[in-house]
Design a binder for these strands. Structure first.
Lengths: 236, 236
DNA sequence: ATTATCTATAGATCTATAGATAATGC
DNA sequence: ATTATCTATAGATCTATAGATAATGC
C-alpha cells in the first residue's frame, strides 16, 4: 500500500512534476485526447504545444518524446478518423454476397458512421477547419481520404442505376457518399448521441443516392446485419 | 499624363513600396478584403498580420494605422456580416402590415440572406471556426448576434401557431430561424451563386418552422415583395 | 498641416533540440 | 540499460510601438 494515494501505476521513466492520475491512459493516448479536444474546440493553429502539455500535465518539451510536434499529433488524429473504416473495406468487399451487392455499400456506411461516431471529441470536424485543410499534414493525408472515397465510389458504382449513373461520374459519386456519411459529424456537434437508427438512416441514404429501390435497400440492410459479426467490430 | 502608367489615383500619404493599382479601393477596404479571404481560407489564428500586409502590398506595421491589429480586423468583418440586417429590423417591424405579420419574418429572412450572400468571401463561415468562436472579439460580438436572434425570435413568436409555440421557447425559436437562414453560407461554400429562389425558399422555410400554413406563406411572400423598396436595398 | 505610409526594433510567444535526471527492469 | 520525463535555451516567428519620411492640401 503506497503512501501516495493518487500516484499512477508504477512505470519506468522520470516521474512527472505533476503526478499522473492512477487511472490515466498511456501517455501517448493522453496527449492525443487532450490535443483532439483543443484542436476541435479552439482550433489547430490557435493551440500551442504548450497548451497541450499544460493540460496533460507535462512540460512542453516532453511532447516531443512521443510525437513530431503539432503536425505529428494532427497526422495521427486524422489517421484515427479513417483507419478503422479503411481497414474493413477489403473484408466488406470479400464477404458481401454476390446477389446483394447493395449490402457492401450499406455496410461500409454503417462501419464508417461507427468510426466517426466513436472517434474522440468528434475529430471529424478537423476536415472542415481551414487551418487544418491548408496544412501540409492534410496534404499528406489526402491519399488515405481518397482511398476511402474511391471505395465508396466503387461500391456505389456496383449498384447505381440508370439515371444516376448517367449524371454523376464515379469519383463524384464517391464524394457524394462520403459527404452523406459525414452528417454524423453534425449530429455529434448538435450534442446528440449517434444512435443505431441514425447509422441505418445514413446507410439507407447512401443507397438512395445511388437510386437503389426501396425493396433492395431492405434486403441490403438485412444482409449487412448478418455480415457485421465478421468484421469483429461491435456496432452500436 | 503620368510617366508611371500603373500609379494609383493620387492621394495624400507616403507612397507604398509596391505602388497601389489605379483601380484599388480605399486602403481600409483593401485590407478588409484580403483579411476576409485569408481568415476564411487559411483560418484566423493561422493568418499573421504579415500575411495580410504582404497580400495587400504594404508593410506589416502599416496595418496598425487602419486597424487595432488582427482582432480589430476580425471585429469589423463580423460586424459587416450582421450590421446591414440589424439596421433594417426596425423599419421591417414598422412597415409590416398588421394583417400579415408573417411578412415581417419573411422579409427579415430575405434581407438577411441577402446580407450573407453578398458579404465578401463568405465571411459567415467565421461563425463556425473554433479559433474565432473562442476569441475575445467573438465574445464582444455576441450582443449584436443576440440582437439579431432576438429579432427573429420576436417576429417568429408573432406568427407561430399552437403546436410549435408549446414546444419551443422564444429564444430557442430565434436560434432555429437564424440557423435556417445560415444555410446560405453552405450554399456559397458549395460554389453556387445564391439566387432569388434560394432566398425565397429560405424565407418560406422560416415560416414553416413556425408552423405557418401554406396559404399564409404565399400571402407573406407577396406582402414582403411590396415592402422591399422601402428598405432601400436592392435584393438580388 | 494632414495623411498614409515607411524603417527599425523591443518584447512576447512558440517550436524544437541538447543534455541531465529519476524512475523501472534485467 | 531503457524509458519517460525534466531543465535550459537557441532561433524563428509574430505583434505592436516609436519615430522618420514622402506625398497631398491649404
Amino acid at each position: 500500500m503506497s503512501t501516495y494515494a493518487t500516484a499512477g501505476a508504477t512505470r519506468p521513466g522520470r516521474p512527472r512534476v505533476i503526478p499522473r492520475a492512477a487511472s490515466a491512459a498511456a501517455p501517448r493516448d493522453e496527449i492525443l485526447d487532450v490535443a483532439a479536444e483543443l484542436f476541435v474546440n479552439r482550433g489547430f493553429a490557435a493551440t500551442s504545444t504548450r497548451d497541450i502539455a499544460e493540460k496533460v500535465g507535462i512540460r512542453q518539451a516532453s511532447l516531443y518524446y512521443h510525437f513530431a510536434g503539432k503536425p505529428g499529433i494532427l497526422a495521427e488524429l486524422l489517421e484515427l478518423s479513417v483507419r478503422p473504416s479503411l481497414e474493413k473495406v477489403a473484408r466488406i468487399e470479400q464477404e458481401c454476397p454476390a446477389d446483394v451487392p447493395e449490402a457492401a455499400l450499406y455496410l461500409l456506411a454503417l462501419v464508417d458512421v461507427e468510426t466517426l461516431a466513436t472517434v474522440p471529441h468528434n475529430i471529424g470536424k478537423l476536415y472542415r477547419m481551414p487551418d487544418v485543410r491548408s496544412s501540409e499534414v492534410f496534404e499528406e493525408f489526402q491519399p488515405a481520404l481518397q482511398e476511402l472515397t474511391a471505395a465508396y465510389g466503387r461500391l456505389g458504382a456496383g449498384v447505381v442505376s440508370g439515371p444516376v449513373a448517367a449524371t454523376v461520374g464515379l469519383n463524384q459519386l464517391g464524394g457524394l457518399l462520403v459527404q452523406a456519411v459525414e452528417v454524423v459529424i453534425r449530429i455529434r456537434s448538435g450534442g446528440d448521441e449517434v444512435a443505431r437508427v441514425h447509422a441505418q438512416a445514413i446507410a439507407a441514404t447512401c443507397l438512395r443516392i445511388c437510386a437503389v429501390r426501396e425493396e433492395r435497400i431492405a434486403l441490403a440492410a438485412a444482409a449487412a446485419e448478418d455480415l457485421i459479426p465478421l468484421l469483429g467490430a461491435a456496432i452500436t
